[in-house]
Design a binder for these strands. Sequence first.
DNA 1: CACGAACCCTGGCTGC
DNA 2: TGCAGCCAGGGTTCGT
Length: 284
Amino acid sequence: MPELPEVETVCRGLAAALEGRRLTGVEVRRPDLRIPFPPGFAAALQGRRVLRIRRRGKYFIWELDDGTALLGHLGMSGSMTIRAPGTNFPPPAPHDHVILTTDDGAQVSYHDPRRFGLMTLSTVAGVEDHPLLAAMGPEPLSDAFTPAVLAAALKGKQTPIKSALLDQGAVAGLGNIYVCEALFRARVSPRRLADNVGRRKVEALVPAIKSVLTEAIASGGSSLRDYRQATGELGYFQHTFAVYDREGQPCPGCDCGAAEGQANGIQRIVQAGRSTFFCAKRQR
DNA sequence: CACGAACCCTGGCTGC
DNA sequence: TGCAGCCAGGGTTCGT
């Protein structure tokens, strides 16, 4: 479910509520997420103060006051929800796998029906070198992400650009939705081989990726089925999708498919087992 | 080596 | 109404 904008939105919500707070309760209700919790997981968090919450790609990182880092991923269906101090906390729902309590009486629950998410421990000093993060590509919203850097990542790859951009080692944080949207903005066909994306198209892709991610973050992310911000609010970027999940609808760029009986419009294909949505007329 | 398919798991929707 | 089948925002592993 969550791609970079959703994880960023969740981290901002968590940071506002948790930075400076102490974790007074740690309840692990189900230990078998994608990878098991490490031994001593709950004890390592218990009593620690949260100094900072940040994001790397689709991972969240909590920096604790003893140099421990909590490193986690929301997978496809994970969410983190804050319940403010003073509210009546509902009993744990099915798939609430971790419940944290803070010293000001707030509660944070990690909920993940499909259990593709994970949480593990690292250190603040070494978390960037953790095996889960070490091979990750540049942050797309940083100044380090430039056309030259993207071109180098695509060079020689005989896989479609759609698949290449989903590779977290090329650029961090993109998922199925935002790759489709960025390719549309840059007018690049998802079927074009990565190695055959010319310099001008790479130069269009970089700002397309940056703009779609920036706008999605400003909208609180995209809520399709169960995604929510940490505050419980829905994101609303899904109303802005140009192509994602819009098969058969007119292309918002060239309006093909709008006229009666006209064959064009947004089409859906499958690449590497995932749906791709695009306009074959506008994206080349 | 580099690619795509299969798989991990559950829930929701579609169509018969 | 019931249920089988398919699909889903992620990532890893296995086979070609």
